[in-house]
């Protein structure tokens, strides 16, 4: 083992160096930038300490972006995992055509992000879109609903599109996990006379706790930083209804030439995401303590 240590470091070094140079080094630069008032039109940096932070913290924009980011992340992660799990349960049954169904259900995930976003913008189109076409034909709505053009429906619509794109990955992960739930435990539960639902909650879910936790964390990080979908669907509009951290940062830095504020939003973005993950960890710890106590 000892003589292998140098080899271990050799193997690990490319990953560490690449991530260090391309991710951490720029990130430190971003944190430093956020302490200076810099913008494209005024390139000489002035040290202003935390005053940009104070300014942003008290702005309405920031409050809206935080609220949207939390709703967006929570909504997509929750639905993606629930829908993903439900599909996994269904596809786990020994049914005819299972192999084909398993690969077909993965299609949305394989579709390039820009393509999926363009497709959903078209799906939601008030006049030409397929969704409103169904609503009109089924007489559920007279003229169709402008999903992406109302502040009340834009974010939920974007969440639906993102869930469609992302749930298949969760399905595969859970499908894999289901195959490793101990068959004996399930049989024992059946002999005990447990119904389908009881079986699910008493045996399957506890057995997959670790896996669910991991998948939730991974999808949280990916969703929080998911840029393409909202950018193509609404660019963060109407008003600020779908503006989340990545779209707001892009809008500030490249749409309005305000690099300093973009950097500050970037730092906040990392903070909020860390908070979200900490919150999640706390909830889990609480739930575990409760289940251990019971």
């Amino acid at each position: 083992m000892k003589r292998g240590r140098w080899l271990v470091f050799l193997f690990v070094s490319p990953a560490v160096i690449l991530v260090g140079v391309l991710m951490y080094y720029p990130m430190i630069g971003t944190v430093i930038d956020s302490l200076y008032a810099t913008s494209f039109i005024d390139p000489t940096p002035k040290f202003v300490g935390l005053s940009i932070y104070r300014e942003i913290l008290t702005s309405i924009d920031f409050a809206e972006v935080v609220r949207n980011s939390c709703i967006w992340t929570a909504g997509v992660v929750l639905l993606q995992n629930v829908v993903g799990f439900a599909f996994a349960l269904l596809l786990d049954q020994r049914l005819p055509g299972r192999a084909l169904m398993r690969s077909l259900v993965l299609l949305p995930w394989v579709l390039p992000g820009v393509v999926a976003a363009i497709l959903w913008r078209f799906m939601f189109d008030p006049q030409l879109g397929l969704i409103n076409s169904f609503l009109i034909r089924l007489h559920l709505s007279g003229q169709g609903i402008p999903w992406l053009a109302q502040t009340s429906t834009a974010l939920p619509a974007a969440i639906v599109a993102a869930v469609w794109k992302g749930f298949p990955f969760s399905t595969v992960v859970y499908l894999a996990g289901l195959q490793h739930v101990d068959a004996e435990q399930i049989e024992a539960a059946i002999i005990d006379g447990a119904g389908q639902l009881r079986r699910l909650f008493d045996v399957v879910l506890p057995a997959m706790r670790e896996l669910i936790a991991l998948n939730v964390i991974l999808t949280t990080i990916l969703t929080f930083n998911y840029f393409d979908m909202i950018w193509v669907l609404t660019r963060g509009g109407p008003e600020n209804a779908t503006n989340i951290f990545p779209t707001r940062i892009f809008e500030l830095a490249f749409g309005e030439f305000r690099f300093g504020e973009g950097a500050t939003y970037g730092v906040f973005s990392i903070l909020v995401l860390t908070l979200l993950l900490a919150l999640y960890a706390a909830i889990r710890r609480g739930a575990e303590r409760k289940s251990a106590g019971a």
């Binding site: 991530v19 991710m23 951490y24 080094y25 720029p26 990130m27 630069g29 971003t30 990080i221 990916l222 930083n225 840029f227 951290f245 990545p246 940062i249 892009f250 830095a253 490249f254 690099f259 973009g262 950097a263 939003y265 970037g266 730092v267 973005s269 990392i270 995401l273 860390t274």
Partner: peptide, 12 residues
Amino acid sequence: AQMFPESAIIIP
């Protein structure tokens, strides 16, 4: 490292 928003670090 996955936590960084790309658009915030793209210029560096």
